[in-house]
């Protein structure tokens, strides 16, 4: 079978070893789960947006109506529990540059992701399947996304993977539990967890971060590499987090 050389390129592990960067994630499917998934995702979003901003300024794209900075991130959701935009903005993410797509179920979300990747104009596609509060709501419709997610089989994932490689884009699925997105084509599985900061080591890390305590509590997030085809399995990466106002 003939194919282009660029389609054969493998993701390069950067020297820092941090597993959730664009260099690692591009051209493959990554699954991110756990309570701190959105916290650790901000770094990736920032990186992608900075890259696209640099690229558009390098190309000097004079757009119609003075607009510039294409929407390079598409966030596909299967529920109405959105990331809280002021929190994303506080982490340096340009919220206005993210296109949100609402789909009725995970299979439709995968179809939307396919369409985005086919357009060749997207750097990062996020498939958001995690809806942690759905079970607590009196009126929430139990759509059982986990059962519907099984319909995203290897054939669908294979198509998505090929498109990711062709367009050099990253596909990231946010799930509630690791392994919800089944299949061997998921390149990396990461679990992001969070705990309240208490130890002396955390205090040192906190001081190094150079941030004032603020009104919210301090937390430590841990990004654990559950499955990888290139990196060090079970490696954990920690980060100090500021809690929202009132959360101690």
């Amino acid at each position: 079978m003939l194919c282009r050389a660029r389609d054969l390129q493998k993701p390069v592990q950067p020297s820092s070893g941090y597993p959730l960067t664009f260099a690692v994630s591009r051209g493959c499917i990554t699954e991110l789960s756990g309570p701190a998934a959105l916290d650790v995702l901000c770094r990736l979003l920032r990186e992608v947006q900075q890259r696209s901003a640099q690229r558009s300024s390098a190309h000097g794209s004079a757009r119609r109506g003075g607009a510039s900075g294409a929407v390079r991130v598409v966030w596909i959701m299967t529920h109405q529990s959105l990331p809280f935009a002021p929190d994303l903005a506080a982490n340096g993410v340009a919220v206005r540059d993210i296109a949100f797509v609402f789909t009725p179920h995970p299979v439709a979300a995968a179809q939307a992701a396919e369409q985005c990747l086919r357009s060749n104009g997207v750097d990062l596609v996020i498939l958001d399947f995690a809806e942690p509060a759905a079970g607590l709501c009196a009126t929430a419709e139990h759509t059982q996304p986990r059962e519907r997610m099984r319909e995203i089989d290897n054939a669908v994932l294979g198509r998505l993977l090929r498109l990711c490689r062709r367009s050099h884009a990253a596909l990231l699925a946010i799930t509630e539990r690791s392994g919800d997105l089944a299949g061997s084509l998921v390149f990396t599985r990461l679990v992001a967890e969070r705990r309240r900061s208490s130890s002396a080591a955390d205090a040192t890390a906190d001081a190094n971060a150079g941030a004032n305590a603020g009104a919210g509590g301090r937390f430590v997030s841990s990004l654990k590499l559950v499955k990888t085809k290139t990196g060090r399995q079970n490696a954990a990466y920690r980060e100090v987090l500021r809690g929202p106002y009132g959360m101690l």
């Binding site: 770094r43 809280f84 994303l88």
Partner: peptide
């Protein structure tokens, strides 16, 4: 330092 991101 990164702020915890909520869902709403």
């Amino acid at each position: 330092s990164v702020q915890v991101v909520r869902r709403a």
